[in-house]
Design a protein around this nucleic acid. Structure first.
Length: 496
RNA sequence: GCCCCCAUCGUCUAGAGGCCUAGGACGCCACCCUUUCAAGGUGGAGAUCAGGGGUUCGAAUCCCCUUGGGGGCACCA
C-alpha cells in the first residue's frame, strides 16, 4: 500500500489567506494522521499578479502556524526538498510544454486563434441571450491552411483542450458521488496562453500527476472545475487522485470569505496577538469536528483525531468572537517564559508607536504575569492592559478621577489620606499584602466604601477604571512612582 | 442564464430511524466569587431540526418536491 501524498498549492498573488491556511491545515492533518507526505507547491503562473513578497508572506505564515512540509521549493538559500523539484510552477515550464505536446500529438488539444476581444464579444452575445457562457469551438477543426492564414496575420494561438462528450463522475470523500455532464463545462478550455504560459487547470493536473498526489483536498469552490481536471488526468494517461472538497469559510453574510468583508490575512491576526495554537485550533474546527465535546485541542491532538471522512458539507461562518475565546484559552495555557517571549514584539510595537516610553525587563514582565495572563484575549492587548506602567507622564481624564458616588472634595481628601498611608507602608516594605489592610482600615475609619477609595487610587495611578488588581498594580508601579502619581492627581483635582 | 453543492439555537457544531420533551461550545442574560476588569463557577433565555409531501409501528436522521443560501461557468488561481 502506498502512502498518501497531499499538497497545499497556494498562489502568491496575495498574503496568506484564512481559507488557504485552513486548506493547508486539513491537508497537513491528513498527511500526519496517515503517516503520508505533505507537499508545498507554489502556483505562480499568474506572473502579473504574483510576487516574491506574497510568496514570503505565505511561507512565513504557514511556518508560523506550525506547518512543516516534507517536500517543497527551495527557500532563502535552503535547497528544495523532495524528489519532484522544482516545486515552483514557473520553474516547471518544460514539463507543461511536454505535456501539451503530448495532448496536441493525440489531438486532445488544438491551437485557438481567437482574440480576447472576439471571445469577450462572444461571451457578451451569449449573456444577452441569457445563455451560459461557452466557447463556440470555432477553432476546433481548423484546416492546416486556415491555421497558416491566422499565423500569417501574426496571431499567436492559445491551446485549448477538447472536453468531448459524456458525464464525469467525482467520488468525493466529503460530498459523495457528484455527476457533471461535460456539456456544462463551457466548451473546450484554454490550457496554455498565447504567450506560452500554462493555465491553472492544466498545471494543477500535470503537477498532481507528476508529484503522485493521491488526495486532492481543497475548497469547495473547485468542485465544479473538477471534471476538467479528471478529463485532463485521463488525457494525460493518469488515474485521477481522490478528491475531498472542503466547505467554504464564509463572511457574516454567508458569502465566500473575502478581503472586502472580513479580515482574511493570517498576518493581520498574528499582528493583533492571536497565537498559532488558537488559530490552528479554531480553523480545524471550522468544517470539521471531533464528535466529542473537547474543543480546546493542540496541533498534535488535532492530528491524532482528524478524519477526512468526518468533514462537514455546509459552509461555516468565520466567528471572530469564538476565535478570541480560544485565543484566551491558549494564552492562559502558556508557560511564563514562553509568554514573556511572545509578548516582547508587542511591547516593542507599543514603544515604536509611542504609546509607552520604555520596555520592561523580562523579570519585571514575568512578575506581572500572574495578574495579566488571564486578562489577555490577545497578546496585542498588553499595552491597553498595563501600558500605564511604562509611561513617564500619565494622561488622565480629570472627569474619571472622581468616583461615581463621590465629589471632588472627597476625592482629594481620600487621595491625600491614601498617599500618607501608602507612604507609611513603603517605609517598611512594599508588598500587595501589606498595602491592603491599612487602606481598608483607612476607608472604614473615614466611612468610605473601600471600593470607592480603591477606584480613586486606581484612576489616579493608572488613568483607567479597569486594571489588574489594585495592590499588585501599585507594587508593579513602585513606591515612588505611586506617590508621584497620587500627587499629580491631587493637583489635577480642583482645590476646595 | 446554465451546472453543481448545501440546509439543526445568532454563530461553530453533536446527531448516521427509536437513547432527542434535540446535546456541547462561543456570544448573550442572571447569580456566585470580587477593590475595578478579567478569569472561574452555577443557572437561564435561545432550534416547531427551512417548508411540504412520502417511506416506516416510529424520522432531525431515508426518498421526492418546493423554498432559501452558496459556489462554479476567464488566455485568474
Amino acid at each position: 500500500m502506498t502512502l498518501d501524498r497531499v499538497r497545499i498549492a497556494p498562489s502568491p498573488t496575495g498574503p496568506l489567506h484564512i481559507g488557504t491556511a485552513r486548506t493547508a491545515l486539513f491537508n497537513f492533518f491528513h498527511a500526519r494522521h496517515t503517516g503520508g507526505t505533505f507537499i508545498l507547491r507554489l502556483e505562480d503562473t499568474d506572473v502579473a499578479r504574483s510576487s516574491i513578497a506574497y510568496e514570503k508572506d505565505i511561507l512565513d505564515g504557514l511556518h508560523w502556524l506550525g506547518l512543516r512540509w516534507d517536500e517543497g521549493p527551495e527557500v532563502a538559500g535552503e535547497a528544495a526538498r523532495g524528489p519532484h523539484a522544482p516545486y515552483r510552477q514557473m520553474e516547471r515550464l518544460p514539463r507543461y510544454a511536454a505535456a501539451a505536446e503530448r495532448l496536441i500529438a493525440d489531438d486532445m488539444a488544438y491551437p485557438c486563434y481567437c482574440t480576447t476581444e472576439e471571445l469577450d464579444a462572444e461571451r457578451k452575445r451569449l449573456e444577452a441571450l441569457k445563455l451560459p457562457p461557452r466557447y463556440s469551438g470555432r477553432c476546433a477543426n481548423l484546416t492546416p491552411e486556415q491555421r497558416a492564414a491566422f499565423e500569417g496575420e501574426g496571431r499567436r494561438p492559445a491551446l485549448r483542450f477538447r472536453v468531448g462528450e459524456g458525464t464525469v463522475v467525482i467520488d468525493d470523500i466529503v460530498r459523495g458521488r457528484v455527476e457533471i455532464d461535460v456539456s456544462n463545462l463551457g466548451g473546450d478550455f484554454v490550457i496554455v496562453r498565447a504567450d506560452g504560459t500554462p493555465l491553472y487547470h492544466f498545471t494543477v493536473v500535470v503537477d498532481d500527476a507528476e508529484m503522485e498526489i493521491t488526495h486532492v483536498i481543497r475548497g469547495e469552490d473547485h468542485l465544479s472545475n473538477t471534471p476538467k481536471h479528471i478529463l485532463l488526468f485521463r488525457a494525460l494517461g493518469h488515474t485521477p487522485p481522490a478528491f475531498a472538497h472542503l466547505p467554504l469559510i464564509l463572511n457574516a453574510d454567508r458569502t465566500k470569505m473575502s478581503k472586502r468583508k472580513s479580515q482574511t490575512a493570517i498576518d493581520d491576526y498574528r499582528a493583533e496577538g492571536f497565537i498559532p495554537e488558537a488559530l490552528v485550533n479554531y480553523l480545524a474546527l471550522l468544517g470539521w469536528s471531533t464528535g466529542s465535546d473537547d474543543e480546546v485541542l493542540s496541533l498534535d491532538e488535532l492530528i491524532e483525531r482528524f478524519q477526512l471522512t468526518e468533514v462537514n458539507k455546509a459552509g461555516a461562518v468565520f466567528d471572530r468572537e469564538r476565535l478570541e475565546w480560544l485565543n484566551g484559552q491558549w494564552i492562559r495555557r502558556l508557560g511564563p517564559d514562553d509568554l514573556v517571549e511572545r509578548l516582547r514584539p508587542f511591547l516593542e510595537a507599543e514603544l515604536a508607536a509611542g504609546r509607552i516610553d520604555r520596555l520592561p525587563a523580562d523579570g519585571e514582565l514575568k512578575a506581572l504575569l500572574p495578574v495579566v495572563q488571564e486578562r489577555l484575549p490577545r497578546l496585542g492587548a498588553i499595552g491597553d492592559l498595563v501600558g500605564f506602567l511604562w509611561v513617564e507622564e500619565l494622561d488622565i481624564d480629570p472627569a474619571l478621577l472622581i468616583p461615581k458616588r463621590w465629589d471632588a472634595a472627597t476625592t482629594v481628601e481620600a487621595l491625600r489620606a491614601a498617599r500618607e498611608t501608602i507612604a507609611e507602608v513603603g517605609r517598611v516594605s512594599y508588598e500587595a499584602d501589606e498595602l491592603e489592610p491599612p487602606l481598608r482600615a483607612l476607608a472604614e475609619a473615614r466611612g468610605w466604601k473601600a471600593g470607592d477609595l480603591f477606584m480613586a487610587i486606581r484612576v489616579a495611578v493608572t488613568g483607567r477604571t479597569a486594571t489588574p488588581p489594585l495592590f499588585d498594580t501599585l507594587v508593579a508601579l513602585g513606591h515612588d512612582r505611586t506617590l508621584a502619581r497620587l500627587d499629580r492627581a491631587i493637583e489635577a483635582l480642583p482645590d476646595e
